[in-house]
Design a protein around this nucleic acid. Structure first.
Lengths: 332, 332
DNA sequence: GTGAAAGCGCTAACAG
DNA sequence: CTGTTAGCGCTTTCAC
């Protein structure tokens, strides 16, 4: 029982017919291209006709004609990372909008990086912005071949063929671990979240901890932890005597802190715990959580970079904007 | 406009040429339509040619041809709401993918609902899924006129012209407030977050609290609170003697609890506080936070509904899947 | 100041 | 079993 008949979706040809002009004129008027070309009277007629018909332009047709869409794609998993990131995304979206682009979070969950990249490439986005683990050289190659102008990776190491926004996940681990070691901790645990999409970041942060520990006579152990109270409690109950913890981020760190407290292990007395992201819950926790602050400002600059790369594709380059800073509080 | 020659993006015509077949055959092979129509040998040749050229189909062309895209659009602001929602989105994305749809979080920040709806309509999505405040009747009308098959609203009241997924924000407030009142609280505060995108929800939740308070001799006061420690502290310092609080959600509730504790106001002794969402931080807080649990299960069912509505548009209907449940803990 | 017309890449009748 | 072909709606050159 198809409820409503497909209403005749108005096309620019319909608008042209109603306004008594050609489709070309409609295009000129509605896009404000070639300013003084169409007379004011005609413009008004066209506008009125479009209004009357409820005309909405067809992005697919425009994209087909232009050879690319005005979409800027990011993986949606990014959004799930936390408040820090989602607030920043909002700024980025705003900034891109001012250049005429539409930020789209694409939930491309596929078998592997290349499958995901293919799904993205099909949309012929103007730009793709993604963390390194997803942008393998093959994926970058595929995107370029499909005509994506700007491929921007965020990660620790420059990605061949792509512009890279350096964001050293390792640095998070390194800063926190160096601090823990300086505080005299010698048996470090690194929480490894089991949650989707986080494993790649966790591995890099762990590498940073290892870097800081190197040659210091410090033992580093990755410890899996799901974001789940029972899991945390089980871990705390069979605590293997680590005296320092880097908690992946504030969420996981706080979870562990509470579990340790629950089983009578003092923080920071028995165990010092540091997180990352410097979010509000950590700041107001007791003890207040030592954390690594990530300065994700510069959404405007990033939007400008994206625009520049789209306009004139350049050789792969490297931009370094993300600043990090250790914030020492009571948990270490 | 383009400064450099675009790399030769392979089209289906290129694949056809290389494989020595027609474009139609390429289409049949790569889409697996009409099985048994093309010989195995030809299929293999086509596949090899596509592979060799790095062929990626063009979604815009397909959408233009099909009259609609395979996109399911949601406002991206939804993603920023919290872990509860973003986890659920991940499930939804997965479920939709199995039907061949692509979930896209669209950061359409525009002047008003109609402008945003227009931006969505341009993409000719198969379906749009959005909370009621954004889907005014005019916006729904616009989407339908543009040919969007399934328009699904989530909110407390059925939206004319759209399928509505009933999600009574008020119920959150009502459940929490009824509980507070039962506990003997008579001067209730309702936290009203100032953050972007949350005000509409906050207003509905407040309405729910008012509903519960009606005729009970209970005073209800909306209290603005930004998600910010200083703001919370200032509020706590000049606490106007409320004895019960509904905190919008767990995040804001926890923030206030900490601020109240900081200024020596006992929770729940002096002030009882309830939140919503039943997230982990509230469960492990001290005192553990009373909350309203929202059961957002059914991503699979929703995906099925979306698919059904796209396949055969039906009269606007109402679906009621979201269950809510008060979880009483120590903070009240 | 305005219109005609050529495609962009794809799918699906229809012909062979 | 495979090919030919007609558009989907839009922009933009070129001609009037």
């Amino acid at each position: 029982m198809s409820g409503r008949p497909d209403p005749a979706r108005a096309t620019s040809a319909d608008v042209a017919r109603l306004a008594g002009v050609s489709r070309a004129t409609v295009s000129f008027v509605l896009n404000d291209t070639e300013p003084g070309r169409v007379s004011d009277a005609t413009r008004a007629r066209v506008r009125a006709a479009a209004e009357q018909l409820g005309y909405v332009s067809n992005a697919a047709a425009r994209a087909l004609r232009a050879g690319r869409s005005n979409l800027v794609l990011m993986p949606a998993t990014q959004a799930a990372i936390g408040r820090l990131v989602s607030d920043w995304l909002d700024d980025l979206q705003q900034a891109l909008h001012e250049y005429g682009y539409t930020l789209v979070l694409h939930g491309g969950r596929g078998a592997g990086p290349v499958e995901v990249a293919r799904a993205w490439a099909e949309m012929r986005p103007a730009a793709v912005l993604a963390p390194v683990p997803g942008l393998t050289p093959a994926a970058v190659e595929l995107l370029h071949t499909a005509g994506v102008r700007a491929v921007i990776a965020t990660g620790g190491e420059p990605v061949p063929g792509a512009h890279t926004l350096i964001f050293r996940q390792e640095e998070l681990g390194r800063l926190a671990a160096a601090h823990l070691i300086e505080r005299g901790r010698r048996r470090l645990a690194v929480l490894m979240p089991g949650e989707r999409g986080l494993d790649a970041f966790a591995a890099e942060r762990l590498a940073g901890v290892r870097l800081a520990a190197e040659g210091q006579g410090v033992e580093v152990t990755p410890v899996p932890l799901r974001y789940d109270w029972d899991d945390a409690l089980a871990l705390a109950r069979s605590w293997p005597g680590f005296d320092g913890v880097f908690g992946y981020n504030d969420d996981y760190a706080l979870l562990l802190v509470r579990a340790l407290q629950e089983v009578g292990l003092e923080v920071p007395g028995a165990v010092a715990v540091a997180g990352a992201d410097d979010l509000l819950p950590g700041r107001i926790a007791r003890p207040a959580l030592t954390s690594v602050r990530i300065d994700l400002s510069g959404a405007g600059e990033l939007a400008a970079l994206v625009h520049r790369l789209i306009e004139e594709p350049a050789e792969a380059g490297v931009v370094d904007t993300v600043r990090m800073q250790l914030i020492v509080r009571d948990s270490t």
